[in-house]
Design a protein around this nucleic acid. Structure first.
Length: 682
RNA sequence: GGGCCGGUAGCUCAGUUGGUUAGAGCAGGGGACUCAUAAUCCCUUGGUCGCGGGUUCGAGUCCUGCCCGGCCUACCA
């Protein structure tokens, strides 16, 4: 097979927060694939960069009192430090805020313009008069125009599911300043994606560019009707690149971010005296993007459209993965399962996570779960108990003699392992890592019984059996090394340690095809520690205690150091009078019945007692946070005079009070003991 | 409501184009060993393959209806 030329990218992490275990699914998945391809002798270039533009970056920088450039520089350092800690072997890590990227954006822009694909439209958008910026939907909140639910985001209502524009919200406010936004018109530039419809139909539905479920998804959701124009500009102020022929307008972050893949390649080329076109305008080059399912749309419609228009290589494949859950749930800050990369590294070896993710990852875009108990037991029993154990139980017996000059008869064990190489390689190639892991561990499973049966510890007591002892250990150590070769894309450090043990580097997949003979064996050094429960506990505990941003710690001196994040997410409302407050009749109520509403995703149906025979039926969006059985009997605080609301499942006669962002993080209010149903809250 | 993926031993999963008594790892039980990081090895308990129809000589494997779970959607990108 001739050597392939492969450019690989992982999605560009956004420069406004730290890397956490969820991000790492992707970087580990990609890095394994890259290391595998390198081991096969293919020519690889693995590039990434920080995604640095957009409103959110401006806000983060402002909040920290520094310039955007200082902010993204700081984050970039953190990101690269974290990635290095997990052994992510980028060839180049750039930034979308680079001269190369600006230049390339211009090139794409010209190509799109001259193809007649850019149109200009007036857009009316909410504007924060205090901060003087336009507000994306998620930065506006207000009361739902359909169901009057308070505190809904600008695009749709959590409570009734209605969708609308932020301008339709009642009493809207900016989540940045709390100010009331005003409508303001501005000019936006759009890409006429519909002009590329035929091309996108063809590209997404043919060949092996996408996983089949992704191709179906695109067909069913977008390609069955005319494609909308894509808004790719934002008016000032905006942190990004100003459009050269459109002063006062900037490219939207999602326009320049993917171009960052090319810009990062360009930087690498410049440093290594290579030609960018030989990577991005060369039919011999394969381009593989690894992304999460949340950004499917951008990478499978816009991006191929842009590349096509500007005459760059199209991706050979966009590999899409799912999200991470921990212990079967969304990562949770309060449960300590929202673990930052840097926190993990303080407590555990990165190889554990690389191995575990690999053992869970397949070629589909299912979510994967990090069950912490399973994590420990799998790593300990597979890697320590089976793999490393092979070396640690035999290496010292041949430390003085080295390996036998001829590879002894091993009943075909090594040959079997060598023969499995193709199948394992095919699994790696297809991103079917869990299959690869299974096949490899099967090999290790065959090796330990061999050692058991050969009893080297008995052989060494009999000087006449010295040759046999050397043979047995030669076999065991070669089987060990063969397994490590196959695992090396997952476990780069173990591969290095194994290279040191034999004084022979592992540098090619085919190193698993030929046993080592007649050479020395160095002193065995401990290779991999077992995971102890207390390490995991310490990591979880530390994650619980972490506060959102470093700056918060500087400004808070109380012993509790509560984060200011909740207030930032939802600034204080306008002042109201005591009379305003008195309009709301809050009452203590007892939950006397609680049940699931089978058709609803978020709702529980509650029957509340206000004492005596006074009953209210209330639908509450707390299904993800509370078990109905556990609610029955407890006291809550309800809004008792809220206008009843007809819902799909029945009439809701009030609401119960709770804090938290929603989903599983909802926290009901409870009165102190002594309160009884029916009492008003003053 | 629509789309996709899944539902196989307590847990995590494998079961190739339908073919003989459904497998592995972990956990559980019993035993062995002591070289090894309380690692390893042997034996063993355990399954109406979500449910009901159908095709077939034969179905975990194909078709169909339903139930359950996850994710994505619900006219937003």
């Amino acid at each position: 097979m001739t050597e392939r030329r492969i450019l690989i990218t992982a999605a560009l992490p956004y420069a406004n927060g730290p890397i956490h275990l969820g991000h790492l699914v992707e970087y580990i998945q990609t890095d394994i694939w890259v290391r595998f391809q390198r081991l096969r002798g293919n020519q690889c270039l693995f590039v990434c960069a920080d995604d640095t533009h957009g409103t959110a970056i401006m806000i983060s920088a402002q909040r920290h009192g520094i310039t955007e450039e200082e902010w993204i520089e700081r984050i970039s350092q953190e990101h690269q430090h974290d990635f290095a800690g997990f052994g992510i072997s980028f060839d180049h890590y750039g930034s979308t805020n680079s001269p190369e990227n600006r230049e390339l954006c211009g090139e794409f822009w010209s190509a799109l313009s001259s193809a007649g694909l850019i149109v200009v439209k007036e857009v009316e958008q909410l504007f924060d008069p205090e901060k003087e910026i336009f507000l994306a939907d998620r930065f506006v909140k207000g009361t739902c125009p359909k169901c009057q639910a308070a505190d809904q985001y600008g695009d749709n209502c959590d409570k009734c599911g209605a969708t609308y524009t932020p301008a339709e919200l009642i009493d809207p406010f900016s989540t940045l300043s709390g100010a009331t936004p005003v409508l303001r018109k501005s000019t936006h530039h759009f890409v006429r994606l519909e002009a590329l419809h035929d091309f996108l139909n063809e590209w997404t539905q043919s060949g092996d560019h996408l996983q089949s479920e992704v191709a179906n998804y695109l067909k069913g959701h977008f390609l069955h009707e005319p494609l909308r124009d894509w808004d790719v500009s934002r008016p000032a102020p905006y942190f990004g690149f100003e459009i050269p022929d459109q002063p006062g307008n900037y490219w939207y972050v999602w326009f320049d971010a993917p171009i960052g893949y090319i810009a990062s390649t360009a930087q690498w080329c410049r440093q290594h005296g290579e030609n960018l076109e030989s990577w991005w305008k060369n039919p011999e080059t394969e381009i593989h993007h690894f992304i999460g399912k949340d950004i499917t749309y951008f990478h499978t419609l816009f991006w191929p459209g842009m590349l096509k228009s500007a005459g760059f290589n199209l991706p050979s494949k966009v590999h899409i993965h799912g999200f991470l859950t921990v212990n079967g749930e969304k990562m949770s800050k309060s449960k300590g399962t929202f673990v930052k990369a840097s926190t993990y590294l303080e407590h555990l070896d990165p190889q554990y996570l690389r191995y575990f993710y690999a053992s869970k990852l397949g070629p589909r875009l299912d979510d994967i779960d990090l069950n912490l108990d399973e994590f420990a037991s799998k790593v300990n029993s597979d890697l320590v108990g089976k793999v490393v154990n092979l070396a640690s139980r035999t290496a010292k017996f041949v430390q003085s003699t080295g390996l036998s000059t001829e590879y002894p008869d091993d009943q075909g064990l090594f040959a079997q392992g060598a023969a499995a190489g193709d199948e394992i390689a095919a699994a790696y190639e297809a991103c079917d890592y869990n299959r690869a892991v299974r096949l490899i561990i099967e090999l290790a499973d065959r090796a330990n019984p061999f050692v058991e049966q050969a009893e080297p510890w008995k052989l060494r007591k009999d000087p006449e059996q010295a040759d046999r002892l050397q043979d047995v250990c030669t076999i065991a150590l070669n089987l060990f090394r063969q397994v490590v070769v196959y695992l090396s894309p997952l476990l780069p450090r173990l591969a290095e340690q194994t290279s040191e043990l034999f004084g022979t580097p592992i540098e090619h997949w085919d190193d698993a095809q030929t046993p080592l003979t007649g050479q020395g064996v160095n002193k065995f050094k401990h290779m991999l520690k077992r995971i102890e429960q207390k390490d995991i506990e310490a990591m979880v505990e530390e994650s619980k205690n972490e506060i959102e941003s470093e700056n918060d710690t500087e400004t808070t001196n109380t012993p509790w150091s509560d984060s200011d994040q909740p207030l930032q997410d939802e600034p204080l409302a306008e002042t109201c009078t005591i009379d305003d407050f008195a309009k709301v009749d809050l009452r203590v109520a007892r939950v006397i019945e609680a049940e699931h509403v089978p058709e609803a995703n978020k709702l529980l149906k509650l029957t509340l007692s206000l004492g005596g025979n006074e009953r209210r039926q209330v639908f509450a969006g707390i299904k993800k946070a509370y078990e109905p059985e556990k609610l029955v009997g407890r006291l809550v605080v309800m809004v008792a005079n809220l206008q009843p609301r007809k819902m799909r499942f029945g009439l809701s006669e009030g609401m119960i009070t709770a804090s938290g962002p929603g989903g599983a993080d909802v926290f009901l209010l409870s009165p102190d003991s002594g309160a009884v149903p029916g009492q008003r809250v003053h």
